[in-house]
Computed example of a mutant assay.
Amino acid sequence: MLVSNSDRPARLHYMANGFRVLSPGDHVVCGVSGARIPLDGLRYWSVARQEAYASAHLASEALRPR
């Protein structure tokens, strides 16, 4: 039996120049909007917060000092 990673969230470790897959899956969830982000479309994340963002706008919102 093959194990499929589709429709399953991945667990990642975010680093400055990339990320490492800790648990396989096909997407991650945006830390601001809750949107699903396919791994091949993941471009924005925070190393300090260890969370992903669906867009540059959402990333800048999340990282803006309050």
Rank of each mutant, 00 (worst) to 15 (best):
M1K: 02
R66S: 08
A10R: 07
D26I: 03
R66P: 06
S6T: 14
S33P: 14
R36E: 00
R49I: 01
G41Y: 05
W45E: 01
G34I: 07
E51M: 15
E51L: 14
A56H: 06
A10H: 02
P65E: 05
A59E: 14
P38N: 00
E61M: 08
R11G: 02
W45D: 02
G34N: 07
V28T: 13
Q50V: 10
R36L: 09
S6V: 15
F19C: 12
V47P: 05
V21W: 15
D40Q: 09
A48R: 08
R64K: 08
G31S: 12
V21D: 00
A52V: 13
A35L: 05
N17H: 13
H27P: 04
A48K: 07
P9N: 10
A56M: 04
R49Y: 11
Y44I: 07
M1C: 05
S23N: 10
N5G: 06
R49S: 06
G18A: 06
H27S: 03
A56E: 13
V28R: 06
H27V: 01
A62W: 01
S60C: 09
R36V: 09
G31Q: 12
V47L: 03
S6C: 05
A10M: 05
L22D: 04
Y14H: 09
A62F: 05
N5K: 11
L12I: 09
D26V: 03
R36W: 07
G18Y: 09
Y53D: 06
S4R: 08
R11Y: 03
V3Q: 04
L22I: 13
I37V: 12
A35E: 14
A35D: 11
G25D: 05
L2I: 04
A54N: 02
R43C: 08
G34S: 04
G31L: 11
A56G: 09
S46Q: 02
G18D: 01
G31E: 04
S46E: 00
S60P: 13
V47F: 00
D40R: 15
S4A: 12
L42Q: 03
N17G: 09
Y44H: 11
R20E: 13
A59F: 09
R43V: 10
S55R: 11
S23C: 12
P24D: 09
G41W: 12
G31D: 00
A16W: 01
M15N: 12
A35I: 07
P65A: 11
V3H: 02
G34R: 15
P9M: 08
R11S: 11
G25I: 04
R43W: 00
A10S: 10
H13T: 03
R36Y: 08
A59D: 07
M1Y: 00
R66M: 13
G18H: 06
E61L: 15
G41C: 06
L63A: 07
S6F: 10
R8A: 06
